[in-house]
């Protein structure tokens, strides 16, 4: 991030109302330790980071740590709701497509899925706003309120962003689920399940879908980066004060402290979620759980 052009001190000085005269700049540099060598700056940063101090934003002077803590739940809500919606829609449609393989329903779902990955999410967001906010007036066009303050207001404002963000992920889930399920339905154990005379629904859900979930879990792990990227864009369109918007604004404003903080927290979150996905693997696939003693 230090490679970014532009002089932080210049911006900080401008921020605190000072002019660009050399003396003021020098003072600012000293205050934030910017006159120290890079290595020292880095070590100092990490030391403070471990104490929970991520420095101060150069664009508004607020401490970075609390800002991130403030913004994180917003994006977490958006991402989790979108992922849940996408998984429900995608897995359901994928199962149906696999069951209707080669028939009209499969074809329609396939086209819908392709459309889902072809439509840019930010454009979809615009269209949703035009249709449902501007013309029909069902939902607010933008903004955010905390769930704690106003649950209904929070949810109505979340509907359009969640739909916009979920669409492409639902399409990806659908395509993956369709092929996983098609494969599962051709396995020997599905034949066994049929030979046992189990009800069709039991066969599909307990024997077919359960095995396909492993694929879905892998996919979720891989889509994490894309999910964060998607959230950045959607937050921008709907003016949601989330983590993504914080990052984008910070980069555009060359607010190093915020960018560094966000990047670090993202990395930690990523590692945490990866561990969670691994734990879920063990829950879904007994072969992973017992690989130690098998």
């Amino acid at each position: 991030m230090r490679a970014l052009p532009g002089d932080t001190a210049l911006m900080l000085a401008g921020q605190s109302g000072g002019s660009s005269d050399p003396e003021a700049l020098e003072a600012v540099r000293r205050k934030y330790g910017l006159d120290q060598p890079m290595v020292i700056q880095y070590v100092r940063y990490m030391w403070l980071f471990l104490q929970g101090d991520l420095g101060v934003s150069s664009s508004n002077g607020l401490p970075v740590g609390p800002t991130i803590v403030d913004r994180l739940p917003v994006t977490a809500q958006l991402a989790l709701m979108s992922l849940t919606l996408a998984a429900i829609l995608g897995v359901g449609a994928g199962i149906l497509a696999a069951l209707w393989r080669g028939r009209a329903g499969d074809y329609l779902i396939g086209i819908a899925g392709l459309a889902g990955i072809s439509v840019p999410s930010f454009w979809l967001a615009l269209v949703l706003v035009i249709v449902f906010a501007v013309n029909l007036g069902w939902f607010p066009a933008s903004g955010y309120v905390s769930f704690v303050d106003d649950p209904i207001g929070n949810l109505t404002r979340m509907v359009l962003p969640v739909c916009a963000l979920a669409t492409s992920f639902a399409a990806i889930y659908m395509r993956q689920m369709r092929s996983a399920m098609t494969e599962a339905l051709q396995t020997d154990y599905i034949r066994t399940a049929r030979a046992k005379g189990l009800a069709r629904w039991t066969i599909i859900v307990q024997h077919g879908a359960r095995n396909s979930l492993i694929t879905i879990l892998t996919l979720t792990g891989l889509q994490l980066g894309a999910l964060i990227s998607g959230a950045v864009v959607i937050e921008q369109v709907f003016v949601i004060p989330g983590y993504g918007k914080l990052l984008l604004d910070a980069v555009l404003a060359r607010d190093y402290a915020v960018v560094q903080g966000v990047a670090l927290v993202t990395l930690i979150a990523y590692v945490a979620i990866s561990l969670l996905v691994d734990a879920l693997y063990a829950l879904v696939d007994p072969r992973v759980r017992t690989s130690g003693r098998a």
């Binding site: 980066g225 894309a226 990227s229 950045v232 990052l247 984008l248 980069v251 555009l252 993202t266």
Partner: peptide
């Protein structure tokens, strides 16, 4: 794993 948008922004 890395969000490509952060990369692009950078």
């Amino acid at each position: 794993a890395f969000p490509y948008i952060i990369l692009a922004v950078g």
